[in-house]
Amino acid sequence: MGRIVGFAILLFARFITAVRGRWEGIAPVDGQRIYFANHASHGDFILIWTVLPPRMRRRTQPVAGADYWLKTPMRRFIGRDVFNAVLIDRERENRKADPVAQMVEAIDKGSSLIVFPEGTRNQTTQPLQPFKSGLYHLARARPDIDLVPAWIDNLNRVMPKGEFVPIPLICTVTFGAPLRVAEGETKQDFLDRAQAALLALSPKAIAS
């Protein structure tokens, strides 16, 4: 059931966005990776998922907020059964599990991950919000895994927050060169570097 729904969602995503993956800094070949992307819409991980070759897709889990994806039975089904998401608790105060530990566990089981280091969907006029530190702790915990920046372009126009009818517009996902946390690199330096690497993939940055 999850597979059929997953296929239908991919077909719908292609119909609306004709999405193309542009592998600029890395090839679409097997290997465990952590994709980190800009976050403007609930459909973001679906687009990354769509452009991954099927073999890689099956071994890639999105990391998403449990508060959103467990709210209704429908979301629970899509998040858990269709996309096999690693659901993390975003509220620092009363959470039971440590998000970084959950992600590390998924990696140790052989999965690649899709993470959104901005933490929440970007509704500002800035192209990126400041990164949360989770990406750094994850990179530290598993330093031999490539972190691949993935810029998702245009999806925020397809379905802005609060709208429920998507507008068909062409979207792209651009994958950049992988990075790893360097010896002795501070948390802020690493997060700045990761953020710059992601931003450099946006068409606006390429044009100027």
């Binding site: 004709a18 245009n154 802005p160 507008i167 517009l169």
Partner: peptide, 27 residues
């Protein structure tokens, strides 16, 4: 027409306020 309109709309400067007009155009 659908595929062409999707390409054309991608290159326009339309924004939030045009969401329903665009949705009506497509659907």
């Amino acid at each position: 027409s659908f595929a062409a309109l999707r390409e054309f709309a991608t290159l326009t400067d339309t924004r939030r306020a045009d969401h329903w007009a665009l949705a009506a155009a497509f659907f």
